[in-house]
């Protein structure tokens, strides 16, 4: 029996649900936002027509934006609930939290050194520097894109609280942050999480909540060592999910990956046709 338990518990059902929700809302916002951004090109008009033209595309974009902000709010409330306030602020530190610490700065530079063949691969604990970056990038992105998105949601109302020309600024900030978020997710995030040799072709950790023990030994040896030392490794090991579920995760994941790559390739191909300057 013990042989079947090849995966290490990593994400709770709540974490996975948020990530799934984030994927669905992010992709809805990406498709509708790109359709609007490229509306003057035949490709953009085609995308918009799938949603019933630009009026509907904008309406869906606005509604999905509110859903995303609601999800972000619920995440912040969850975080406030989960923080150990008795031990605060020391409880924010340690290997189990996503807070950037000195160890991440060291981890980053040692990883950089490893890529250039200067030293051995550093031993990461539960969260490596790039996983923390991924997490906080969503925070900074949601704050920037959420504030500007809310400003643009009802421009007439917004201009009661600030000069109307702030909307010129907000729209460009919204666009650039959108390009950054999509560009990063559809290249670096997919590459790091799914296409590195150890993870290729698909890393289902965020979907089934567990990480393959061999992958964990490569990317998070310090975490395994710590679990072993604390005598918690055995209870953290689980069997892989049933095959139909794994097939479903794979198909869902790759349909999202292909949608992202489709948007990326066609957006780059059509970028020269935009005449917004």
């Amino acid at each position: 029996m013990a042989d079947e338990r090849t995966r290490l518990k990593r994400f709770t059902p709540v974490h996975r649900l948020w990530h799934l929700g984030l994927i669905l809302v992010f992709m809805t916002l990406s498709v509708t936002g790109i359709a609007w951004m490229f509306f003057e090109t035949p490709w953009g008009r085609g995308l918009a027509n799938l949603f019933g033209g630009y009026v509907n595309v904008l309406e869906i974009h606005r509604t999905a934006g509110l859903v995303m902000l609601a999800g972000f709010t619920s995440h912040i409330l969850y975080m406030i609930y989960r923080i150990d306030w008795k031990g605060f602020p020391r409880s924010l530190l340690g290997p189990e939290t996503l807070v950037f610490q000195w160890v991440d700065v060291k981890g980053f530079f040692r990883h950089l050194g490893w890529v250039f063949g200067l030293n051995k691969l550093p031993h990461f604990d539960r969260w490596s520097w790039w996983e923390k970056f991924d997490y906080w990038a969503v925070w900074w992105g949601l704050i920037i894109i959420g504030v500007t998105g809310l400003m643009l949601y009802n421009p007439v109302l917004t201009s009661d609280y600030m000069p109307g020309w702030m909307l010129n600024v907000a729209l460009w900030v919204h666009r650039i942050e959108a390009v950054l978020a999509m560009g990063y997710s559809f290249t670096a995030h997919f590459m790091i999480e799914h296409w590195r040799l150890g993870s290729f072709p698909f890393n289902a950790a965020m979907f089934d909540g567990t990480l393959d023990i061999e992958e964990a030994k490569h990317d998070h040896p310090e975490w395994i060592a710590r679990l072993e030392k604390e005598g918690r490794l055995n209870e953290a090991l689980v069997a892989p999910p049933p095959v139909p579920l794994r097939i479903f995760y794979f198909l869902f994941g790759y349909s999202i990956i292909f949608l992202g790559l489709f948007l990326l390739v066609f957006a780059i191909a059509n970028a020269a046709l935009l005449t917004l300057f």
């Binding site: 421009p155 007439v156 201009s159 109307g164 020309w165 010129n168």
Partner: peptide
């Protein structure tokens, strides 16, 4: 833009 105000009208259409 229903209810447009002078502040709203300071948006630069030709930015």
């Amino acid at each position: 833009h229903e209810g447009a105000t002078p502040s709203f009208a300071s948006y630069m259409v030709h930015e």
